[in-house]
Design a binder for these strands. Sequence first.
DNA 1: GCATTGCAAAATGCATACAGTTTTAGCATG
DNA 2: CATGCTAAAACTGTATGCATTTTGCAATGC
Lengths: 238, 238
Amino acid sequence: MSEEKREEKRSGRTGGDRVAAICIALRRAIIERALLPGDRLPEDSLGERFGVSRTIARSALGQLAAEGLVDLRRNRIAVVAVPSFEDARDIFDIRVDLERQVVRHLAGKLTEAQVKQLKSMVEAEHQARHGAEGISIRLATEFHVRLAEMTGKPVLIRYVTEICYRAGLSLAVFSRPHSSDCAVSEHLELIEALRTGPVEKACTLMEEHLEAVASRALLQSSGARSRSLMDILAPYAE
Amino acid sequence: MSEEKREEKRSGRTGGDRVAAICIALRRAIIERALLPGDRLPEDSLGERFGVSRTIARSALGQLAAEGLVDLRRNRIAVVAVPSFEDARDIFDIRVDLERQVVRHLAGKLTEAQVKQLKSMVEAEHQARHGAEGISIRLATEFHVRLAEMTGKPVLIRYVTEICYRAGLSLAVFSRPHSSDCAVSEHLELIEALRTGPVEKACTLMEEHLEAVASRALLQSSGARSRSLMDILAPYAE
DNA sequence: GCATTGCAAAATGCATACAGTTTTAGCATG
DNA sequence: CATGCTAAAACTGTATGCATTTTGCAATGC
């Protein structure tokens, strides 16, 4: 019996979905730009890092590929997806439609508790704005995902989440470094519009916000790096 | 371009032509209502039917689960997804947005060859309208998917395809049997509007068409059946 | 009659082995 | 120094085996 198995038994964990755990870790690494588009993701190293076999790592890669975050080519090492400029444009177009639906469902219907939670998330964004760029981007993304979650509509949540992560990945390709991709003030205005109600006002605000985010992504960043996958993922392996 | 190749592009997965082949077969069986919501899909039987190991069957099920066509629960047999009424409503809401984008991209820009191809597809629908109900539904779905493909936008194609299949699955749950879910004449009008051009007219037509499809789905069909998975899939295993 | 228990069969979760392909590294050659 | 060749290393594709969990069903008790 392997070390991991013993650990599992001792901690009482029934082997709760390890594929999902890896997906979550990788999504986070990608959205925080710890993993950049094109970075390689060999099944072996992944499995080793997370203490599972290739089977599990492979399954996680398949899942992420279905979400558009990973590129799989036959007999080739998986890589973090590299969205084309056209892809990025299409992703944002779809994102606008989806998030408009979120706004329509939420405008004027947020509870006090929800408003409070959203504000605290924006506060966290504010705190992080001079720290690591990756954290800011993740927090901004999580704000949008949280909004979707507040609709309570599983299908909408799923698509908004996916498209937000893909948008974040696209920005990693096309936005210049250190451009604040999601202005904190815009999120605050959005909350206010959602709280006070008029649907059209809130929709417009969301559209303008997303269009602004997309517009800020203009220059292409390159940056050859030589980093170790094992090191990058260290903080993400549970 | 072959069906499989298109599939590869759409899902971004080349990993295993065999996985893709099973996905295609199952999608088709589901959209044709040969497989109904709730039907069980054991890895063993699937693998046996398609001549592959459980590994491959399992991977295909994972892919379809990511697309919302299959329900996976830990340690349980996979089943064809059973969308709730709310899911169905949300799926159609998203579908309207996505297909509106398709229309906006295509209106007034279709080539003669494309118009011809679309018309021939509608003709096929017309031919099939008194045959097996499943075939009609599949052809109608393929019409919408083909429209999306004509935009040449991979991201849009992927989401429209997925949402169309999910919509078809939803109709299997909620539409009464023998209600023609996608009127042939509406598809013809749509082609005409796309050909002659005015974007707004075409958009409105698409919205009305999809709203009509959704509206026709009112009663719930039940139907306990005792059928063999092996038999059902016989015509779908290449 | 109906709920409950127990057990064998069935099915999944996961690791691993092996075959086949791609990538890499080293080395010889021009 | 660049280029091409070759063999080893690295990596993926797939099947299979074992452990664990669920399921079907008959026996049991109320």
